[in-house]
Design a protein around this nucleic acid. Structure first.
Lengths: 192, 192
DNA sequence: CAAGCTGATGAGCGCTCGTTAGTTTGACCG
DNA sequence: CGGTCAAACTAACGAGCGCTCATCAGCTTG
């Protein structure tokens, strides 16, 4: 074991914490180095660049969101159950991956092309997939909303906001919050 | 009229646009100057500092939110009507003052003490006031939620998110969005 | 028309940033 | 115990930042 014992995962994790707290542009590499008890240039033994750190965070997170969605969506379920499961896993992720969510939502726009386009495309894919679930529920007469797009935006942002207040030390567990929020989602679309 | 015709309002407005698009730390004074067709030092004839620009934006906006709330809240109204009016004006503000909302939510934490504490106190005041409305509705048996705090967070963040997608060129007017979102809020709390 | 005022300017300050190069350190292995 | 090699170090870079200041242009006013 070398003196500081740095490795790529540790660097990425420290960057994640600070990006989430102060934002990408508001965080200096020297601050990341400081939390790791290391001089700034040492970071370059374990990362490509500051921009690359942000890209890895956003890439991994947006891929995870889509993965979650397709994993829990059963095409044979009725729309209400599809919406419940899709919302629960999305809400749960925002409680268990708070830092990632904050960074993605605040700093994706600080990426440069072509990465920024690819990441936004993934977000749109999730958005459209959720909208389709709602639209099917409306067609089936299970949901009652004027605009599936509006409801989809509302539900997604509702879940995103969990990252802004959830705490592991709070009264509610991630599962409880996810359950209540998926309940909110069903209420928003006027189910049952 | 002098050559460039700069004034404090014009500088603040340009800053608002760029802060909303790129964030406070992501915006350079040189970029603000460029959009105004002026050299950077000229800005200082019409502002105190970059930090002061941010403070003015956040101060004016958070004060407006509280002002809106107390203006539309009629103590004699039933909880459902109070919630509808409070949510509608809050949602409406986020559609009509998109840039301000984005800056406040992204960059309030970039202020320094004591300003940051004061601004966060205002946000808490609005949060608690809305929570009290919901709690009264629950006591009266009009609303049905497990946690007024959770519902209050959810409804507020729901409205905030409007700033992230609303467009003046879109299919819906600010009033229509505000009406639909106040409907979402009533559904979230389980009002009739 | 001269004096005075407002405000835009170029030059440049001190500082911090992300990043690179070259050197030293120290854990591991034969 | 000496050689190897990854990794952390010091030093320094060019660029860009927010901001200051002395200067100067051009409008207003007596």
């Amino acid at each position: 074991m070398t003196r500081a014992g740095l490795n790529p995962d540790v660097v990425l994790d420290a960057a994640l914490t600070l990006f989430a707290r102060r934002g990408y542009h508001g965080t200096a590499l020297s601050e990341i180095a400081e939390t790791l008890q290391v001089r700034t240039p040492s970071l370059y033994n374990h990362m490509g660049s500051k921009h690359d750190l942000l890209l890895r965070i956003v890439d991994r997170t947006t891929a995870g969101v889509l993965d979650d969605f397709h994993r829990v969506l059963d095409p044979d379920d009725p729309p209400a159950e599809q919406l419940r499961r899709a919302t629960r896993v999305y809400a749960h992720r925002h409680a268990t991956h708070r830092r990632e969510a904050l960074v993605v939502n605040r700093d994706t726009s600080s990426l440069s092309e072509p990465a920024i386009g690819e990441m936004q495309a993934r977000r749109r894919e999730h958005e459209h997939a959720l909208r389709a679930v709602i639209a099917r529920g409306v067609e089936a007469g299970d949901f009652h909303v004027e605009s599936p797009a509006l409801a989809s935006f509302a539900i997604r942002e509702l879940c995103v906001s969990i990252a802004r207040w959830f705490s592991d030390d709070g009264a509610l567990t991630a599962e409880e919050v996810a359950d209540q929020y998926s309940g909110f989602a069903l209420r928003i679309v006027g189910a049952s």
